[in-house]
Write a protein that binds this DNA or RNA. Structure first.
Length: 139
DNA sequence: CGCATGATTGTTTTG
DNA sequence: CAAAACAATCATGCG
């Protein structure tokens, strides 16, 4: 009985079904420090889940195995269960925002103008433009 | 020897 | 507003 998956949820394997490497051209400008996207609650949960999964299945095949298991488990979780993960994800996002500001700051500082159309003229660019911009007290 | 792929969902990004 | 893309992971396979 499996009847359930009759419909192809064109949402999973369809989008990146050809490999997540969807960069037919990647025309986006090459940002030297473009911060990557913060992990979603699901990824945060995955971090923990992976560890357990590895212990429970030391012979797992590959990420796909954990991914599926995690996905199924994730859907099984309630908001309360996801709450701690979501909360963490939110923190990540906040930090990401901060990182973005520094990234923008640097950019604004390094190249005063030419934010968009910078071919290669700004050779100097941001060499050591403030490695440590803001150091929060570390207790 | 090294990169690409596979699979999950969520957030970020861009048009 | 909507769709696209990419975020981590890690073993495995191909050139």
């Amino acid at each position: 009985m499996k009847g359930g998956e009759s419909k192809a949820e064109a949402t999973s394997t369809d989008q990146r079904l050809k490999t997540r490497g969807r960069k037919p051209g990647k025309k986006t400008k090459k940002d030297p420090n473009q911060p990557k996207r913060p992990p979603s609650a699901f990824f945060v949960f995955l971090e923990d889940f992976r560890k357990e999964f590895n212990l429970a299945n030391p012979n797992n095949k590959s990420v796909a195995t954990v991914g599926k298991a995690a996905g199924a488990r994730w859907k099984s979780m309630t908001e309360e269960d996801k709450a701690p993960y979501v909360a963490k994800a939110e923190s990540r996002k906040t930090e990401y925002l901060k990182t973005m500001q520094q990234y923008n700051m640097k950019l604004a500082n390094g190249t005063s103008r030419g934010e968009e159309d910078d071919s290669d003229k700004s050779k100097s660019e941001v060499d050591e433009a403030g490695s440590e911009e803001e150091e929060e007290d570390d207790d």
